Simulated scan of single mutants.
Amino acid sequence: MSRFPLYTLDTAPEQSKPVLRQLQQAFGIIPNIAAKMAASPVLINGFIGLFQRVHASSLSEAQLQVLLLTNAVTNASEWAVAFHSALALQQGIDSADVDAIRAGGAPHDAQHAALSTLARALIETRGRIGELDQQRFIDAGFSAAQILEVIAVVAASTITNYTGSVTQPELEAPFDTFAWRAGAR
């Protein structure tokens, strides 16, 4: 038996149930990663609060998916790479750009490349990006304030990425097509 069971609306701690209901309404399913996250009301409620703020930022849903996919690849989170590959394509991200990110590269779209490059740099340097990294991002048409929004996205996705690495959720059938292995980069 797994140390981290898949919780349902019936079995989850009471304080986790509202988030599971919200995710089921948004996706039509309770993602397995959230079902495992539900063991900790502190974690799942912190996760949803930050994600709600991130999705209300100045970045578009497509831009957020570029960031979330980049973060998942950089953190080698197999579940999150599959999930965000599917969502990125749903948001209209070119399949070649999704493939490039999954391979550890940058998308061809200039703004998406700037987002992806900044997110990867933030993760790899543990936030110690230089002036040149910041200027390249701004030169791509973003603002200094949006650098801070990217930090919020990195923080939010780190919750998911680390949870996936620790709990190893099974990939749901709708995302099987997008399965990814960390050694594939």
Rank of each mutant, 00 (worst) to 15 (best):
T177R: 14
F175K: 03
A80E: 15
A184Y: 04
V154T: 03
T125Y: 01
T167Q: 08
D133R: 00
V19L: 04
T167H: 07
L89Y: 05
L64D: 04
T163H: 13
R102T: 07
S57R: 02
I129T: 09
L23S: 08
L20C: 08
A76M: 13
P41M: 10
A113Q: 08
A38D: 11
T158I: 02
A96S: 13
Q91N: 13
P13I: 12
I44H: 02
Q24P: 01
Q146P: 06
Q90Y: 04
I93V: 15
M37E: 10
A156E: 09
S143R: 12
R3E: 15
E14C: 06
R128N: 04
F178G: 03
N45K: 11
Q63T: 10
W180R: 07
A76G: 06
T125H: 05
H112E: 09
V19Q: 04
I101S: 05
L20G: 09
F137T: 02
A35C: 05
R102W: 01
I101F: 01
Q111V: 12
S77I: 01
F27T: 09
P13D: 09
S143A: 07
Q65Y: 02
A179R: 15
P107E: 04
H108E: 15
P13C: 09
A34D: 12
V81L: 00
I129L: 01
Q52C: 05
P107L: 02
V153S: 13
I93E: 06
S165Y: 12
N45T: 11
T125S: 14
Q134V: 14
S157Y: 14
P18R: 09
V154E: 00
E14N: 07
V153I: 12
A179F: 02
G104H: 01
A62W: 04
F175C: 02
A100S: 13
S2W: 12
Q135G: 06
L132Y: 09
A119H: 01
A145N: 13
P18C: 10
A96C: 00
R136W: 05
A62I: 07
P107T: 03
Q135M: 05
I30H: 06
H55I: 10
S77E: 01
T11G: 06
A26F: 05
S57N: 04
F137C: 03
F83A: 09
T8W: 05
Q146K: 00
I93S: 03
D94I: 04
I101T: 00
Q90M: 10
S40I: 07
T74K: 03
V54F: 05
G127W: 00
D109M: 05
S77G: 12
Q15I: 11
E61G: 12
I30S: 01
D133T: 05
T11P: 10
W180H: 02
S85Y: 09
R120S: 12
